[in-house]
Write a protein that binds this DNA or RNA. Structure first.
Lengths: 124, 124
DNA sequence: TGGCGTTATCTTTTATAAAAGATAACGAAA
DNA sequence: TTTCGTTATCTTTTATAAAAGATAACGCCA
């Protein structure tokens, strides 16, 4: 009877199966945990700059993500305005909210998978 | 009725759900696709150096991986010998083979998950 | 018109990881 | 004891990504 991974590895427990999930297009990933967090913070703050700051991401990178996302969707996911009442601002479209919701549920199903596999690893 | 991701994103098709899987210990991953490929090539070539070369990895990095793997398992996964008949050599233990087999099967189950989710994304 | 905070977009600097280079040690065999 | 190809382990260089810095533009409002 072959050993289970749990028997092969040191420190009987403390191991787990983990992973990352994303939507990719033509082999390169364009929607994953990072963009999701950014979008959520934009919804919360109404500003790309403030959102980026909250997650300790540079504004330039945040803006690049937004640009990519808008470029990949039929209609913009994010409406940006420079200048105006409070200097400008940013808001999400319904499509963006829908995409966030989709990814959240997808991730939840993935968590189940991971939890199940972690159990399986220990038992053998 | 809300849009499906497939409707939100451009180019109706060409998208897929993809991801990565690994075993982690105390938050840091230590066994994933890279180490697996390396072990397989070591089994094939009998040499860390040749294995590293085949997968275009530097010897130094390959050796660091081996060191970590051996350190994390109850018994060594890889038996290395410097000097000797042909200058030295490396071979895998039964535990290593078992771990490779485990990961391979795990990845296979993950592939099913991904394929299923990709379908689901399109349909909505 | 001038001020404000934001978006938009450069260029330059910094940090991090990967690779490369160099060299010693190993141990069997000729 | 010399040779060989490997392991073992430094230090140095290179490549890549991320961040930082700088500056213009935007458009409302006082």
């Amino acid at each position: 009877m072959p050993k289970s991974p749990g028997q092969i590895l040191k420190n009987k427990s403390g191991y787990k199966i983990n992973g990352s999930l994303w939507i990719e297009f033509k082999g390169l990933r364009f929607f994953g945990p990072g963009p999701v967090e950014l979008l959520l913070l934009i919804r919360e703050t109404g500003s790309i700059r403030q959102a980026a700051k909250k997650m300790e991401m540079s504004y330039q990178k945040a803006w690049a993500i937004i640009k990519t996302l808008n470029g990949q969707s039929s209609q913009p996911l994010v409406i940006v305005q420079s200048g105006g009442k409070k200097g400008g601002g940013t808001e999400l479209t319904a499509d963006a909210l829908e995409l966030i919701s989709y990814y959240t549920q997808l991730r939840k199903r993935f968590e189940s998978f991971l939890q199940n596999e972690t159990k399986r690893m220990g038992a053998g």
